[in-house]
Nucleic acid binder design. Structure first.
Lengths: 185, 185
DNA sequence: AACTTTCTGAACATCGTGTTCAGTAATATG
DNA sequence: CATATTACTGAACACGATGTTCAGAAAGTT
């Protein structure tokens, strides 16, 4: 790929990242991104059709990093015993998120939260598969799945919204405690 | 209040309600609302500063209806035993929601989901107060609260998004089952 | 009937979006 | 190094939505 393209693309990403630390996504203007990235107007539009497409691609990249090494080959986890594996896995995801905190925080705060939720949900579905099948609760698989994923995402949102005051391991502990119920220990 | 004002306001509400059955909120134009309501442009703006303010007021009204009779005087509920009271209360809320299904569905589907979540969360905080204090789980009150409310809202969102295929009582049963854990029966 | 309030709608200023295009600069290729 | 290719530039433009203004018409009130 042409070096110029790489440079431009990076400049746009960096510009948006920087602007996201100050302003919510939907309050950021394409012109602002262009100015911050120091590129020409038509250059931006030759890379991305719209501002939303840019966000879409950024989110995609971000989540693929966050989840990249947490989806190890199937069968390599032990979800049946004391849940040590799933704990480590979820904790790992939270560490990644706290690295991207400024970005994710700004994205989540605005209306683009929806996009965040969608991606998060998609990736979690793969991650939680085994955990869910090991829960012996008398509700449909579908319901179990939405409950586990939904409560996890809302927990993470809450964690970010209140400023990451707890450590990832504290959050995961509390989450699993609530999920499995106090009497399950 | 002048009859003309009432008429206008109602026309605007009805117009938005009708448009929401076809299109997401953020894809609806002020001009469309004006045309559908059959009023003059400046009339709209003399009633509402922006389209968002209109949505805000509509949501407010909707939720105050949904929760109106579910917040009975304190102490009149029994949340300790078999949870019959809280079950009835939550079920009641879901029935209201299914009445407003077209509206709520469209609002939730779009980016304005955020507003929905905020209102829902505020109202639920009052409703869930007692239930939470009766859960003996070893996590902070704050965490318990966010977990209970967050998982409930995500469950309701899922319920609406998948087309209200279960009855309110089924949803509440499954929700409480998951929340308290299978081993708590 | 006189007075007050609301509604009307065209005209306007403003802003953001996305496109176009001729000119310029960087890069790849032989 | 010369040439062809590809990418960047930025002003100009068309478009669409927002929100304001204001003088006149219509409806409501007393």
């Amino acid at each position: 790929m042409d070096r110029r393209q790489q440079k431009t693309r990076l400049a746009i990403y960096d510009a948006l990242t920087k602007l996201l630390t100050k302003r919510r996504f939907e309050d950021i203007t394409v012109q602002e991104i262009i100015d911050e990235a120091n590129i020409g107007r038509s250059t931006f539009y030759s890379h991305f059709e719209t501002k939303d497409q840019l966000l879409e691609e950024m989110c995609n990249e971000m989540f693929s990093h966050v989840f990249s090494d947490s989806l190890m080959p199937e069968g390599s986890h032990d979800f049946s015993g004391n849940h040590a594996d799933i704990r480590a896995l979820l904790e790992h995801i939270l560490w990644h998120i706290s690295d991207h905190k400024d970005n994710i925080g700004s994205i989540m705060y605005g209306e683009s939260e929806k996009l965040f939720t969608r991606y998060f949900s998609e990736y979690l579905e793969k991650t939680f598969g085994e955990l869910i099948s090991h829960m012996d609760i008398d509700v449909s698989e579908e319901f179990k799945k939405q409950f586990v994923i939904g409560s996890f995402i809302s927990t993470v949102k809450w964690w970010i919204a209140t400023g990451l005051k707890q450590s990832p391991s504290e959050i995961i502990n509390d989450y699993i405690t609530c999920l499995l119920g106090s009497k399950a220990g």
